[in-house]
Amino acid sequence: MRSLPRILKALRRTAVQAVPTIIGIVILNFFLLRLTPGDAADVLAGEAGAATVETLAALKAKFGFDLPALQQLVAYLNNLAHFSLGVSPRYNQPVSDLIAARLPNTLSLMGLALGFALVIGITFGAVMASFVGRVPDKVLSVLSLLFYSIPSFWIGLMLIVLFSVKLGWLPSGGAESIGAGLTGWESILDRARHQVLPAISLALFYVAIYARLTRGDMLEVKAQDHVRTARAKGLSPFAVTRGHVLRNALIPVTTMAGIHLAGLMGGAVVVETVYSWPGLGRLAYEAVMGRDFNVLLGILLLSSLLVVVTNALIDILQAWLDPRIEVR
């Protein structure tokens, strides 16, 4: 109960900072996307193959692309004020419906990838710090370097070749087995099997970062006075590592995890394309190719909100991990 005022203070501070930040991000993204040559009307006219100048002009007028940029921005902000993300010219559907249909897939993939990266990365880092300079430390250091260096799309393709083509253990793409008609636990297990390879491909880069970060922080914490005091009291090495070393070393790791959340969304674009995963990353790629700026703006806005919420949760988690941290 004593931590409740600290949590409320963190939430209040986040809310005050979030509003101008989100508005600034929306305006900046809007003008940056408008610098891109072409728009959805040009793409639709090009795909039609026989569009006339009059047809193109009518398309631009229908979607408001013929208006000055400032008028388009005002119209977009007015939509946001009414809790609307506008309509997608390409799909002819509300952007909110498109995002809502893809969001659960991306969130589940990101959550699984981040959880995998944290668990494996922290475990690797703890082992490396416990056996510093010895064989486990050297082997895991080499693995971490490989995970960090290899592009995620190449890892994805190699995982497909190994586990889907050669071994046949896991599906190579999609979110579920099409036409299988599975229900209940069978459907859940089927979707979980489809998530394994994309989540691993997305997570391995971050596994390397968290492993190296945990190792360095644990070695630094081990040299501090309170750890020597805990050893002098007769605590077992495991108790010292778990209660005094690892807990303090997790603070920088949780900070980096919050920062990497936006990177996970960006990495999902590549991974979801490789695995034909129906999520926001693939939708963003399709929106870029189709110059569907309304969809892109909606995805970028959602990503910004996700980062803001995550940072608030990270502040609360850090205050719980170390009560000495003051929430300002």
Score class of each variant (00 low, 15 high):
Arg102Asn: 13
Val95Tyr: 02
Pro104Gln: 07
Phe124Met: 14
Leu112His: 08
Met128Asp: 08
Ile99Asp: 09
Arg134Lys: 15
Met128Ser: 11
Ile99Arg: 04
Ala100Lys: 04
Leu114Pro: 08
Gly111Phe: 04
Ala129His: 05
Val119Ala: 12
Leu103Arg: 04
Gly125Phe: 09
Asp97Trp: 02
Asp97Gly: 01
Thr106Ser: 15
Arg134Pro: 13
Ala101Arg: 06
Ile120Tyr: 00
Pro136Gln: 04
Leu114Cys: 13
Met110Pro: 05
Leu114Gly: 14
Leu109Pro: 06
Ala113Leu: 15
Pro136Leu: 07
Asp97Phe: 03
Leu107Ala: 09
Leu112Glu: 13
Ala113Pro: 12
Asn105Gln: 05
Leu103Asn: 03
Arg102Gln: 12
Thr106Met: 04
Asn105Val: 12
Arg102Met: 07
Asp97Asn: 05
Thr106Ile: 05
Arg102Lys: 14
Val95Phe: 03
Gly125Ile: 13
Gly111Glu: 10
Ala101Met: 06
Asn105Pro: 02
Phe131Thr: 14
Val119Asp: 04
Ile99Pro: 09
Val95Leu: 03
Ala117Leu: 13
Gly121Glu: 00
Leu103Lys: 05
Arg134Met: 08
Leu107Phe: 07
Ser108Gly: 02
Met128Trp: 05
Ala126Thr: 10
Asp97Arg: 01
Asp137Ile: 09
Leu114Met: 15
Phe124Thr: 02
Met128Ile: 08
Ser130Ala: 15
Ser96Met: 08
Leu109Ser: 04
Val135Gln: 06
Ile99Leu: 15
Leu98Asp: 01
Arg134Glu: 14
Pro104Ile: 13
Leu112Ser: 15
Thr106Trp: 04
Gly121Gln: 00
Val132Phe: 08
Gly115Lys: 07
Thr123Val: 15
Val127Gly: 01
Leu107Ile: 08
Phe124Ile: 07
Gly125Cys: 10
Gly125Pro: 11
Arg134Cys: 12
Ala129Tyr: 06
Gly133Cys: 11
Arg134Asn: 13
Pro104Val: 12
Met110Glu: 10
Arg102Trp: 10
Leu98Trp: 01
Ser96Asp: 13
Phe116Leu: 15
Ile120Gly: 00
Phe131Gly: 11
Phe116Cys: 11
Gln93Gly: 02
Ser96Lys: 01
Leu107Gly: 03
Val135Gly: 06
Ala113His: 10
Leu107His: 01
Leu114Phe: 11
Leu112Gln: 11
Ile120Phe: 06
Leu118Ser: 07
Ala101His: 05
Arg134Ser: 15
Leu98Thr: 03
Gly125Trp: 12
Phe116Thr: 15
Ala113Tyr: 14
Gly133Arg: 03
Ile122Met: 12
Pro136Phe: 05
Asp97Cys: 01
Phe124Cys: 09
Phe124Arg: 00
Val127Phe: 04
Ile120Cys: 02
Leu107Asp: 07
Gly125Ser: 11
Gly133Asp: 14
Leu103Gln: 10
Val132Leu: 03
Ala129Thr: 04
Ile99Val: 11
Phe116Ala: 14
Leu118Gln: 09
Val132Ala: 14
Asn105Gly: 01
Val95Asp: 04
Ile120Trp: 02
Leu114Glu: 12
Gly125Tyr: 11
Gly115Met: 10
Gly115Thr: 08
Leu98Val: 07
Ala113Lys: 07
Thr123Phe: 10
Leu112Asn: 09
